[in-house]
Write a protein that binds this DNA or RNA. Structure first.
Lengths: 112, 112
DNA sequence: AGCTTATAGATAGTGTCACTACATATAGCA
DNA sequence: TGCTATATGTAGTGACACTATCTATAAGCT
């Protein structure tokens, strides 16, 4: 999966991955890997900065915990995050419909 | 339409806009505006550099002409461009299926 | 004891690319 | 004379997902 393609859509997917309940970064990676049948395999260098960005934006809140001797930062959707998620989903529907329309284009040529 | 969202998908749309026959940059903008019901309204600062990039990549070829006293650069798909277009269309189908899957996610929580 | 893998997090730096803002020029209309 | 549409172009910016690298613990294998 070429990197550029993802631009602008990552946040929506991260929020969606947290919709089912709190998750830490590593678990988000796995959740997305599972829900996309292995197609989306995000590097840690992508996910951790992105989660910070979402936290700073107030869309998720993080809290530290220690499980099996390993520290985790669990993230949870805020109300604003839930709202943002539904907005992003709508955006995606619009966007994908638009691109699909552009790719289907005009069956017959209408030359300038 | 936020700019970042488009990243990586613009080339496919430009190639698609040229599929019905040669077009110059300005006409490509209008073609995409029409085929997307006005949703995609590309600025000239986006389209002209992008067409250059595609030309340099060998996916389209351009030629100057003068119509009604105005000079135009008409672009046409090369065989490589047609091949690239069908590849990009397939990429888009995969990509959009992946994002949709990620956004639908898991209905019930499966906490880590 | 030593090695590898999985788990878990982080950051510095890079590269791509669509964008804004601006500049140029012709044609047609009011 | 000015405005709009047509037509192309460049310089510079900013966003952001990426690569590469680092730290650290636990579990499993040999």
């Amino acid at each position: 999966m070429r990197g550029e393609e993802l631009k602008g859509h990552l946040d929506a997917m991260l929020l969606a991955a947290l919709e089912g309940g709190p998750r830490h970064g590593y678990a988000v990676i796995e959740a997305l890997r599972q829900s996309t049948g292995g197609k989306l395999d995000l590097p840690t260098g992508t996910i951790y900065p992105a989660l910070r960005r979402l936290e700073q934006a107030g869309l998720i809140t993080g809290s530290w915990s220690v499980v099996a001797g390993r520290r985790r930062r669990d993230y949870e959707l805020t109300p604003a995050g839930r709202q943002a998620l539904s907005g992003r989903r709508a955006d995606w529907r619009d966007f994908s419909a638009m691109v699909t329309a552009a790719l289907e284009g005009n069956p017959w040529p209408s030359p300038a």
